[in-house]
Every structure is written in structure tokens, then in C-alpha cells.
């Protein structure tokens, strides 16, 4: 008796054979007495096993309240994913709407700085201005991305950038006949213009935008404020507390009228992109930028006299801002829909 015959007999007893197999098995059983005896013993075995009674439970297995308490479900993946998506979507929508609803040009005296993840150093100077009050070195207040700067020479550092130009050493050398590069270079060479605009922004266009943002400020004249915009990708006009309407006291030392100041104001803007994080400014009035790769911004649209085409530039910036805002809103909306779908699918399970 082999294993296959036993399997055949076992299945035969359970009525688990096909019609053809059953007929074959019956023919073999009729012809083979040993096979028939094997089947009989198997049948008796099954009967004995089946004779086992259902036992009586020795005790009640009714659940107590403690046993019935279902373990607290941890947050499952759909819940976490949908919540994270919803938060991200709302954030994108808020940023998008704020971009669309906020004008690109900041009011006079206001500084908007949006710095993300790069090191920026931007300073500007105005001819005829002689600053007296030294800036706190690497002032933590100035490290804030968006802040109000009361000093007419505005330095805004988005990060704890090392920038400590003693304002006492600052003078103004940039002239209207100089290009931006020349102005900056001469400032550095003469050592009397404590003006450094260094930016670790990723692109020169960022510095261009900085100049654009600064332009209306310079043209407004009366305050003769330098405008600082340190940023990487986008300028978002912030709404800090209003700048003092009157020029700071230091400006009264200037013999120029506000309009003259405005007319003569030279923006010496230089943006350098430092690949390393070691950009630093030397306190003696010179500007040095550490790092091999530096890039000087030369913007044809900004004239040394401070009379570029600001309207066009502002419109272009506004357009960029609008596109960015619209994109963020669309992405945020899609994300919100995904969050809702994921949440609903998680609830159906």
C-alpha cells in the first residue's frame, strides 16, 4: 500500500474525488481485497475520531470589561498623511493669497527682507551722508528676515551674517558717473565708503531685485535711506511698523536738500555670490569677500544716477509675484483635494 493509494482512499471516503476518479477507485476496490481492507480500517478510524464529543467548557469565557477594551488605535498612515497634506495645503494657500494680495512695492522707509537659506549682506550708501552711530556687530535684531531698521543706513542680515562695517568710517564716494560696479569698486578702493553689498544669494537676479526694491526708496529722496533687501528668490514686501516719517537726525547734517539727495543718490550696489559661507567684511571700511567665486552684479537697467525704469521693473516683479502666488494656490488646492481623498479612503476601511 503506497501513499498515493492511501490518499485516493482517504479522498474517496470524503467524497472528494471527481466522477472519473471515483469510478476508477471503485473498480480497483472491487478487484483488490487489500485495498478494500485498508479502506475499511481508515473508515473505522474516521468514525472513532468523529465519535469524540463536543466538550463542555470548564468555565465561562465571557469577556470582562477589561478584556473587551480594544487597544487604542494609533494614528494610521492615511490619517497622518491627510493631516500633513492638509496643513501643507493651507500653508501654500495662505502664502499664495498673500502674494497675490500684497503689492510689490514697499512704502518709503520700509524694508522688506525675505531671506531663506542663504547668507546675504547688502548695504547701500547715500552720498553726503555721514553716519555716526555704529551698528552693533552682527546684531541679532538685524538677523531677522524682516525687520524695521531705524538707521538710515539699513543693514539687514537675514542670518547671522558677519557684517560689521563701522558706520563712523563710512563715507560716500560713489558718483553718478560711475556704474554700479565702478561705484562699488571705487568705494572699496578708496576705503571711505563703508558700503558693502554682498549677497550669498544663489543668483544674480536676486541682487537685481534687491536693487529694484531699493530703487523707489532712493528716488523718494527725502529720507535718503538706503534700502536693503536681502533675499534669495522672492521679495515679499513685509509690513513692519512704519518707518519714521522724518529723516533721522544724522541726515540733517547733510547740506543737501532731500531732493538733491535723491537726485544725487547713488546706489552702489554690489552683489557677490559667495559659494562659501566665509563671506566677511572687514571693519576698516574695506570690503572683502572671501570665497573664490564671486559675482559682481551689473545691471544695465539701473543707472548710476538712480533713474532706471522702476515702473517696468516693478511690473515685472509684480508679474513674477503673481505667477508665484497663483502657482502656490493651485498646488495648495491640489494638495487639499488629495488630503481629503486620502482621509475619506482611510475612513472607509
Amino acid at each position: 500500500m503506497n501513499e498515493q493509494d492511501r490518499e485516493l482512499l482517504s479522498a474517496y471516503l470524503d467524497n472528494a474525488l471527481s466522477q472519473g476518479e471515483r469510478v476508477d477507485a471503485e473498480q480497483r476496490l472491487a478487484a483488490d481485497p487489500e485495498l478494500r481492507r485498508e479502506m475499511d480500517s481508515l473508515q473505522l478510524t474516521i468514525q472513532l475520531i468523529q465519535s469524540l464529543p463536543e466538550l463542555t467548557a470548564p468555565r465561562s469565557f465571557a469577556l470582562t470589561k477589561d478584556q473587551a477594551r480594544r487597544p487604542a488605535r494609533l494614528l494610521n498612515f492615511p490619517t497622518i498623511a491627510s493631516a500633513a497634506s492638509a496643513v501643507a495645503a493651507v500653508a501654500l494657500l495662505l502664502i499664495g493669497f498673500s502674494l497675490l494680495s500684497t503689492p510689490q512695492t514697499a512704502p518709503v522707509g520700509q524694508v522688506a527682507v525675505l531671506a531663506t537659506n542663504t547668507m546675504s549682506e547688502i548695504t547701500t550708501s547715500t552720498e553726503g551722508y555721514s553716519a555716526a552711530a555704529p551698528l552693533p556687530a552682527a546684531s541679532p535684531q538685524l538677523a531677522s528676515p524682516t525687520q524695521r531698521v531705524d538707521d538710515p543706513l539699513i543693514l539687514a542680515l537675514p542670518t547671522a551674517t558677519a557684517i560689521q562695517p563701522p558706520i563712523a568710517d563710512m563715507a560716500f564716494a560713489a558718483t553718478t558717473s560711475e556704474t554700479l560696479d565702478d561705484a562699488a569698486s571705487s568705494s572699496i578702493q578708496m576705503g571711505n565708503t563703508a558700503q558693502g553689498l554682498t549677497s550669498a544669494a544663489d543668483t544674480a537676479s536676486s541682487a537685481e531685485s534687491a536693487a529694484i526694491a531699493a530703487q523707489p526708496e532712493m528716488q523718494s529722496g527725502g529720507d535718503a535711506n538706503g534700502v536693503v533687501a536681502g533675499f534669495t528668490d522672492t521679495i515679499i514686501p513685509a509690513t513692519p511698523p512704519p518707518f519714521p516719517s522724518a529723516a533721522p537726525t544724522q541726515l540733517t547734517e547733510s547740506t543737501n536738500t532731500p531732493s538733491e539727495v535723491a537726485a544725487q543718490a547713488t546706489i552702489a550696489t554690489e552683489s557677490r555670490i559667495a559659494e562659501t559661507d566665509e563671506a566677511e567684511m572687514v571693519n576698516d571700511g574695506d570690503v572683502t569677500v572671501a570665497g573664490e567665486e564671486t559675482q559682481t552684479l551689473t545691471d544695465d537697467t539701473i543707472t548710476p544716477t538712480g533713474t532706471p525704469a522702476p515702473a517696468d521693473l516693478a511690473r515685472a516683479a509684480q508679474t513674477d509675484q503673481t505667477w508665484l502666488g497663483a502657482t502656490l494656490i493651485i498646488v495648495g488646492g491640489i494638495l487639499l483635494v488629495i488630503a481629503v481623498v486620502v482621509w475619506l479612503s482611510g475612513r472607509r476601511r
Binding site: 501513499e3 492511501r6 490518499e7 482512499l9 482517504s10 479522498a11 470524503d14 480500517s41 481508515l42 473505522l44 478510524t45 474516521i46 468514525q47 472513532l48 475520531i49
Partner: peptide, 25 residues
């Protein structure tokens, strides 16, 4: 199942005195 039944049958053959004559394996 076939092997299990055969094993039970072989096992019970050692306890045939407990099994009624008509059910002896």
C-alpha cells in the same frame, strides 16, 4: 489528512482492547 488518518489508525491499534469488536481496526 491521509497521513494523519493512517497515523491515528496505527496508533489506535495499540489500544484495541478499548475498542468494541465491531470497530476494531
Amino acid at each position: 489528512l491521509s497521513r494523519a488518518r493512517a497515523a491515528i489508525r496505527d496508533c489506535l491499534r495499540g489500544a484495541e482492547e478499548l475498542i468494541a469488536p465491531q470497530l476494531r481496526l
